[in-house]
Design a protein around this nucleic acid. Structure first.
Length: 319
DNA sequence: CGACTTTGACCAGCGC
DNA sequence: GCGCTGGTCAAAGTCG
């Protein structure tokens, strides 16, 4: 429980479903374009030298934070980060969904993905923030999450590569999702000849970093582990999980940061096509009130990781 | 006995 | 073409 009062870190990143290298190049370009968005009140991470950026797994521009949440009946403490003013970050009592402002109005968005789509980086420089990971933060190369674990103020970020190219790619992938799912089903059915001839398109991915003792955080969904691989330049293996719900192709990868073993990097890929089978606490309320978790929701955000005793996190916009 | 994990093998993509 | 790496498969093992 004390951990909840400690510094917590989590960052959430929307990952475009483009090939990793294209991602990297595009995002690098974006970062280079936006790296001068240094604001007086920002927690700005000094961009690395251009030559270093090539070696960075990714760089992201920070998406516009959601509008302030409406009054809520959540049983959780609602102490949302003051996004507009950079106010208190009383993360110790923040629920994960609260931190995400997920129980707020996502409008017509059926999902967080949709919401991200409808809320690209817009507006003033105060709203738009470049986010370039610190060179010291070398999350393993496959990690798409790249905030700085050592970011002061325990700040974390909802980040997205919300540049135009990224949006386009994201939209394209969304449009191709159904097709892809069908292909995946076909692949599953035609198991023996392990042919994956078609170039694999990536589903939209979210990644976040969690300070946690436990590798596999209980997010409310049921997962089946289907693989584990040693990660290059990291003593910690990466685990691969698939959602066990029939027809749900959501995957997640879990790995520990080699730099900070207390940080677990979780990457979600795909969209749940079903509500979470395990509704805890007020998440159901939150889900209902926001449309998240509804059967029609195309993506149900990971559930209350913060409720786990070994997990601690904070989610506030980096500024 | 079903659900899940472990683990070695396989495949695809990419860089050299 | 070859080797490396990430991602996935699937048989075997484990657990409740």
């Amino acid at each position: 429980m004390n951990e909840m009062k400690q510094n917590h870190d989590i960052s959430i990143v929307r990952i475009n479903s483009v090939e990793k290298r294209e991602e990297k190049k595009e995002l690098t370009r974006t970062a280079l374009k936006t790296e001068n968005f240094n604001m007086a009140n920002s927690t700005f991470i000094t961009p690395p030298p251009t030559s270093d950026i090539d070696h960075m797994p990714n760089v992201f521009s920070l998406s516009t934070p959601p509008p302030p949440p409406p009054p809520t009946s959540s049983i959780f403490d609602m102490i949302p980060c003051d996004i507009s003013t950079g106010g208190d970050q009383k993360a110790g009592s923040l629920g994960f969904m609260d931190l995400l402002d997920i129980n707020q109005d996502f409008g017509a968005s059926a999902s967080l993905f949709d919401w991200f789509n409808q809320n690209p980086v817009v507006g003033s420089p105060q709203q738009q923030q470049s986010f370039v990971p610190s060179p010291a933060s070398t999350v393993p190369e496959t990690s798409e999450v790249l905030n700085n674990p050592a970011t002061p103020n325990s700040s974390a970020s909802i980040s997205s590569s919300s540049n135009e190219a990224g949006e386009d790619a994201f939209q394209q992938v969304k449009a191709g999702d159904q097709e892809e799912e069908q292909d995946q089903d076909k692949n599953k059915k035609q198991l023996k000849p392990k042919k994956r001839s078609q170039k694999r398109l990536r589903e939209p991915r979210f990644a976040f970093m969690t300070k946690s003792e436990v590798d596999h955080l209980d997010d409310g969904y049921r997962w089946r582990k289907y693989g584990q691989k040693a990660v290059k330049n990291s003593p910690y293996p990466r685990s691969y999980y698939r959602c066990t719900s029939a027809g749900c192709g959501v995957k997640k990868r879990v790995e520990r940061s080699s730099d900070d073993p207390s940080i677990v990097v979780t990457t979600y890929e795909g969209q749940h096509i079903h509500p979470s089978p395990i509704i805890r606490g007020s998440i159901g309320i939150l889900a209902d009130s926001s449309g998240f978790g509804a059967a029609t929701s195309s993506f149900v955000f990971p559930q209350p990781l913060y409720q786990q005793k070994d997990a601690s996190m904070i989610l506030c916009p980096l500024r």
